[in-house]
Design a protein around this nucleic acid. Sequence first.
DNA 1: CTGAAAGCGCTTACAG
DNA 2: CTGAAAGCGCTTACAG
Lengths: 339, 339
Amino acid sequence: MENQRVRSARVTIHDVAAAAGVSISTASKALNNTGRMGDDTRERVKRVATEIGFRPNALAKGLLSNRSFTIGLLTNDTYGRFTLPVMAGITEALVDHGVSVFLCTIEDDPALGKVHVDAMLDKSVDGIIASGKRIDRRLPVDLSNLPVPVVYAFTEGTPGSVTFCADDFQGATLAVEWLMGLGRRRIAHITGPESFVSVRERAKAYLSLVGDQLPVLYGTWSEAWGHEAVAKIWNTSGPKPDAIFCGNDQIARAVVDALRERDVRVPRDVSVVGFDNWEIVAAQTRPPLTTVDMNLKALGREAGLTVLALTEGRAVEPGIRTLPCELVVRQSCGGNPDH
Amino acid sequence: MENQRVRSARVTIHDVAAAAGVSISTASKALNNTGRMGDDTRERVKRVATEIGFRPNALAKGLLSNRSFTIGLLTNDTYGRFTLPVMAGITEALVDHGVSVFLCTIEDDPALGKVHVDAMLDKSVDGIIASGKRIDRRLPVDLSNLPVPVVYAFTEGTPGSVTFCADDFQGATLAVEWLMGLGRRRIAHITGPESFVSVRERAKAYLSLVGDQLPVLYGTWSEAWGHEAVAKIWNTSGPKPDAIFCGNDQIARAVVDALRERDVRVPRDVSVVGFDNWEIVAAQTRPPLTTVDMNLKALGREAGLTVLALTEGRAVEPGIRTLPCELVVRQSCGGNPDH
DNA sequence: CTGAAAGCGCTTACAG
DNA sequence: CTGAAAGCGCTTACAG
């Protein structure tokens, strides 16, 4: 029964050696391209190995090399808004190197965090990537002094660590310059809580470009706040903005909706830019949002490649690595997408 | 240097045995509560082990037992809408058993799927959970005849497998009965593509309760379709519905928006129910959506416990296991939440 | 150019 | 009641 053969014992290097008529050591060396032997022997072993479907047991390899070809991804971003793109990037970068990733969501529970970290360590992960939902908060677990390298992505790292994050200042600059290039001259900024560094960075970029003709409106990350802010502006007398740079897509969506309800046309009367490029929000807004994409997948790729380097003992410069954002042009600003 | 000690050799069972003054075999047996020995010896070994921070190497254990305390989660739901809650449930159920989970997103690429499955097998996963975004489509990878148990969650399984999914019929019944209990008598149904079984199941429940006084409106899973459907109904002469049961939250959100734009009040004039309880959509709608929750986390928990059972050789009845949905009452229907 | 032996960290018969 | 030995599947000095 083909089935039973598959189900029962998996084929080991013993089987390969026997089938190729060589010793186990020779088989091992042939398959790993190490040692010295006749090209014909090496080729024959390799051919036989694939023929009988040999796949080396990663557990055994790991026991020897102390590398499990496994890394852990720790996050407190239950929702997955930030973690999933990061995760996709990590996986994409590491699959070619044969490394798989453990994902653990730990909410804000330190005890749960410790349990998961210990589980990872027990399984000899080659490294850990810590990820979160904002760059100025730590995960609720201590990741210093671990016996494996740790890199941080979209969460605050310990001093001396490698941390990846998006360039909020540059992203915001992209957005505001786009509005200015479209001829907009009265640009408002409706954003999230001032306690977030991202918020402050984005506001700083905004202020450095447009000056303080209009006060930055800090609030929460909700649609409710977007509506409230628009009401605040439009219920006040005086000239209205011809563009609004929003701190995230949810706010932007609400702003677009609120404007429509006031018969202000987007983008004809007012251009609106968002931040995040959260597909479910940005693409479903009417009109769809032009918004800043933080390139989280690229960020994940870099983080993955970096733990790998660290694992392999290559030198990596510590510090905060900032990756550029990109503007995704849809229809909420008008303007020519090919501009 | 404390640091160096941590960074260098991890403590092994050798160290425990030496520190406790027993042989390695005795140490092993003491720690695993096997074998026979004096209670004092056992206790002493255990105490010493925790004192010097011994944690057994899972790779070595796995090599012996052929169990890696690791399972793989395979999904083509890149977005994570369905997979993340399922994943959360799996992790929650398995963390107490010391098993960690590999997450792999494979889009719709069969080659990539095979690569990841092979990687999992190489790492001796104890089992695999396949997950997706609809229950009537298979993942683009063959999971039959694998040397490890496979269970399916929110994706179509092979014949004879164990598959978990939400009870669409019951969920839809919950929604429609809620509307009827509120005194609604003309209930419309705006939903997704008829090609989805979920859509057909939900429609079947709807029809069995309200009859065919109104045609079911099949469309796409987008907000655009929600707007279009409302226009279709309200631009036609004749009596209007006093309630709308929507196939998902995105449609429901659009329906609520469209109604507001026509000055139809929700929930006063029309009650609206959604499906999915997708927080980002449901909670941000004005008013927030009453919607059906598929309990994906519970589904994940069941799936996790089931692979575990299979792994341990316990008997599991094959077939499709349907888990009940729940109605989450917010404000889009009116009615008393404590009802 | 090829193979026998030791060992990675653990567990499990088997002796004593 | 306790320990020496073999072995899980592999790799890597070391002999020949």
